[in-house]
Design a protein around this nucleic acid. Structure first.
Lengths: 111, 111
DNA sequence: GTCATGGGCAACCTCCTGGTTGCCTATGGA
DNA sequence: TCCATAGGCAACCAGGAGGTTGCCCATGAC
């Protein structure tokens, strides 16, 4: 079982990986389910293939994407698990805030 | 109505703001609903007040937090709306991926 | 065999980020 | 009134992020 600190760190890493316009764009292309080569992913980005490769590596490091080699090209596909994880965390935060605020309000009106 | 590019940029900014361990910690403290002063938020962080201030400004810039001046101190509170927004986006991504993958699978097995 | 294509590696550059320190202002309490 | 406390502002610094270029290797098409 990973420590709480490690979990926090991993979560922050995932958000950081999502915190870039280019990477969000790459992710969007991959939500179609079809694994795409780096060359395909570079199309329409105004960026070098190298830059895209770096972004993909960032996404891969946090596990939101993985690559499979197919001949001379390596195809990237999305792994939604870290995303679902992050989504659930955000849901938890807003829900926690919701109930806490309701409790505070009740406390005030209790006078 | 903000342009699609602006929306994408804003979304990336929110994720970037969440992509830091310290800031996730600050956010966690604020989910209790009670607005906290900078001094209070600095407690237990191993950081300078200035550093915490900077982090708070980052969170404020993307709208996930706002400040209210109360006498000589300024209290920060959470605004869950951008968080809910991000959460819904992640949900959308994973759901989109889900259905797309099912469609792909069906296509393959159709042979 | 030859050549275009897909991609890896490394060096390099610039700018932003996270953090510190120093100093100044203002407010609230004794 | 005097002093501790809450913050703001600016300068500064080290390191990391994003991007490019150059060069090399492998694979697939012809």
């Amino acid at each position: 079982m990973p420590s709480a600190a490690a979990v926090l760190r991993a979560r922050a890493s995932v958000f950081a990986a999502l915190g870039d316009e280019t990477r969000l764009g790459l992710l969007a292309k991959l939500t179609n389910g079809e694994p795409l080569s780096i060359a395909r992913l570079t199309e329409g980005t105004k960026l070098t293939r190298q830059a895209v490769t770096k972004h993909l590596r960032v996404l891969e490091d946090v596990g939101v994407v993985f690559s499979v080699k197919a001949g001379r090209e390596s195809r990237f596909a999305l792994d939604p698990r870290p995303i679902v994880n992050a989504q659930e965390y955000l849901e938890h935060v807003s829900r926690h805030w919701d109930t806490a605020l309701a409790r505070l309000k009740a406390l005030v009106e209790e006078t």
